[in-house]
Design a protein around this nucleic acid. Structure first.
Lengths: 192, 192, 192, 192
DNA sequence: TATGAATGAGTCTTCATTCAT
DNA sequence: GATGAATGAAGACTCATTCAT
């Protein structure tokens, strides 16, 4: 007589709606990063959940997309915030920031995530705040070391650099990156 | 009794395959710029041609997409080359380039075209050369006034600025743009 | 005022995926037998199911085709196995087998099913085992009464006879059929 | 001043409607043999003629198909007639016929042509005479050496053997083939 | 005479979404 | 609460056929 605790298949996955939902979001995010095609079916398959689960937890595909992009935005934000903290710990020296950013730009997964976010936001105005979230944080962080205008200019430059690292297959070389960040952080030297 | 020459619909457009093809490409490009969704049906409707025409002239939708993006790339390239020529005529002064670029970034159609090109290229490696075509030309143009590294840095900055002008709804202010281009074009002053 | 129980369309068929799938396969098989043209639309119409059902249950049209041919192959196999059993019960006398086969060849539905299977297999190597399934069973059955080579020869002869019954509109006459099976089953008499 | 005889492209292909028509028919026949798919486009491409030529010379695709099958039927007929003549020259000995047929069955192109003809005829009653043309000729030829019933039986056997050579990838072995033809040609020995 | 242009019907297929269970 | 079944809309694409040139 079988008990309710089936033991043949290892630890029975506990019923955990939150975890399931997260798994679907994660899968959707990965799909967006990897090839930009998001469908219920693909998300379900990737997350190893039934098709119905993707519509049960999200009222529409756009809903799921937004949750996935929110996740990506958060991760990007966290990563860049960490870079910012490290740069601050190093006294805000441009060469340190450059080194950190160079690593970031060399990480394909990172720059593809950036691109996924932008791509989605271009034709979806509602998502634009999501796509520029890291921007605001980054600018704020930089503001400790330079004026707001320069901070914005630097952030834009980083954005362009991310896009080009993806399109050209490799990041801007460290030397140029360092030199560029240096002049952008100290524009006042111009006026001397 | 109607004559054989129907005049209600204007002069019957003569058969002109080239023009028809161009019209389809134009329509496809516009769709990509406007909302990124390209289908045979939408292209046909917009170009005012029968559905079959879109498959007759292009062996696949990707083919059509490529032709449309090629058109956009060419237009962007032409516009930026013109900006370059004007900047050169003005002696390469950063403030002139900044003013021209500011106008460019304020033109929604332009920056949406940029974005359309990038968006398409992100998940289509084959299109990447198309998306970076203007970049090469722009760098070359700038090289008359600054070193290659700075030229590339400037181009990347412009790219980021274009993306942000779209995502934030307005271009970087002229003053910051001018200051940024100025320092990027004369990085040597740093070392003084 | 209509009640909620509509009776004009009979008892609402309960959801029964298995039966539905079978109905689609049956419809597809019939279409292949009747005119060889199999499309999702025709199968759906014939099975009285929505178009979407045909793609829901079969991942591709080839998948559906294969299922339909599998059904035909099974039916042919069953019918010929029954003929074999009856022949065995009659002591393996050729005239009994001939009579049974004559009936088989006179049944248009049967020989069209044979032909459908062959037709599909000619340009689809993957289906060839299906088309020759009955052959193997038939040969094995005959092997109880004659040598393997003769058994194969008989089966091939039956195959040609089936094809010709269809193309010529009538089966080989019983007398010739009997005589032919007789000599094919006792080739040893030749060597006496 | 250019003359009307252009010499730059080598011997100018003479205008030869008959040859062009033949080329299209040949191409269509080859397509039917190779994969059974016949379209105007494929025939035109294979025959190296403009698409329009295929509709210019044939009032419909069915027309072209029929012409192509007529060609195949004729070739099969010719080949089997030649086999018949050789068998006759050899005194009608079954082993000679068997050897010739074994070669025929081992020739993939031949048996695929047979199959193409049958496949087309199964669902096109109008083509059935075409598909059985060789049969009549073959029977007549054999009638010089055996009775009509046996001749028909042999022809049917050959038909089944052709189909199976295709479906099973190899012809019936020569020994069995020889033995089978032998008994089929001399059924009277049974009655001794 | 010949042919590229043209097009609408119809093909397979994918999929968001709804719903019965 | 969950989920497989269900389906119609829409997508890309093919193609026989017609026709202007």
């Amino acid at each position: 007589m079988p008990t309710r605790h089936e033991t043949t298949e290892g630890p029975r996955p506990k019923r955990d709606p939150q975890a399931r939902r997260r798994a679907i979001v994660r899968a959707a995010a990965d799909l967006l990063v990897e090839d930009g095609e998001l469908t219920h079916r693909r998300a379900a398959e990737r997350a190893q959940v039934p098709l119905g689960a993707t519509t049960y937890y999200f009222s529409s595909l756009e809903d799921l997309r937004e949750a996935a992009l929110e996740l990506l935005a958060q991760e990007i934000n966290d990563d860049l915030a960490e870079i910012g903290r490290e740069a601050v710990r190093a006294g805000g020296r441009p060469e340190v920031l450059a080194a950190l950013l160079h690593d970031y730009l060399a990480d394909t997964a990172q720059i593809r995530a950036d691109a996924a976010l932008y791509t989605a936001a271009v034709h979806r105005p509602a998502l634009r705040p999501l796509a520029t979230r890291w921007f605001e944080g980054f600018v704020e962080m930089l503001s400790a070391w330079t004026d707001p205008g320069s901070a914005r200019a630097i952030a834009m430059f980083v954005d362009g650099a991310s896009l080009h690292a993806l399109l050209q297959g490799e990041p801007l070389d460290l030397e140029t990156l360092t030199r560029t960040l240096t002049v952008l952080m100290h524009p006042a030297s111009e006026e001397a």
